[in-house]
């Protein structure tokens, strides 16, 4: 096999994307623990760590751009690098959404949250599974897993719709809780957005393997 050096560099890049995804997933998980325990300190830690994820994105992108310039890749190699640039952007956005969740947790503070909090946490665990699945799909360039993500995303969208309905009802009955429930609704929305970013990555993987564009978000 020629171009061993290039192959090694691509593998290094993949390892870094894996590491970045772990960081974003950990940020989401910690923001949800903060929600579950209504722990403002945990929430602040998520906010403080976001800078590391951003830095990681810059590092990966610099390397991918250098590989494009120096190796002049074509076909699948070029798609592999381009989707890496796009995937890191989505992962970085997922990190930002974890920060948004953490900020909402801080705004909620000690206010009592209704039963709907559990619904949000249930949705969150699905999003965490999606993050595991998408990184497997990316590393293995596995189409089946990529398509599976779009099916799970539909489930997240449905759950999001249901929980928003429930929260609206709850608000009408408990106007004094409007402020905290609004924050909970935001968190629900952030999770739904995170699932969309995971789905974008899955679309990129399908483009990488097949060379054709698909829209899984519709």
């Amino acid at each position: 096999m020629v171009r061993e050096n290039f192959e090694d560099k691509l593998q290094e890049l993949k390892d870094q994307v894996l590491q970045m995804n772990d960081m974003a997933k950990s940020a989401i998980t910690r923001s949800l623990i903060a929600l579950d325990q209504q722990d403002e300190q945990q929430a602040q830690a998520v906010i403080d760590h976001d800078e590391e994820i951003n830095k990681m994105e810059d590092e990966i992108n610099d390397q991918a751009i250098w590989l494009i310039a120096s190796e002049q890749p074509v076909a699948k190699d070029l798609r592999r690098l381009v989707i890496t640039l796009k995937a890191t952007n989505d992962i970085e956005r997922i990190g930002d959404l974890a920060v948004n969740i953490a900020k909402s947790v801080k705004r909620i503070g000690n206010a009592e949250l209704p039963q709907e909090k559990q619904d949000v946490l249930n949705t969150a665990s699905i999003v965490e599974q999606m993050l595991d699945l998408v990184i497997d799909a990316y590393l293995e360039e596995d189409l089946e897993k990529a398509f599976e993500i779009s099916r799970i995303d539909d489930q997240v969208d449905n759950q999001y719709g249901d929980s928003i309905q429930k929260m609206l009802k709850h608000m009408t009955k408990h106007p004094d809780e409007i402020s905290s429930i609004t924050q909970l609704a935001f968190i629900s929305r952030y999770l739904e957005r995170a699932a969309d970013h995971v789905t974008n990555i899955a679309e990129g993987i399908i483009y990488l393997v097949k060379g054709k564009h698909v829209d899984l978000n519709n």
Binding site: V2, R3, V74, K76, D77
Partner: peptide, 9 residues
């Protein structure tokens, strides 16, 4: 694909 991506041989 192998030729244009430089993976020949």
């Amino acid at each position: 694909e192998d030729y244009i991506t430089g993976r020949f041989g």
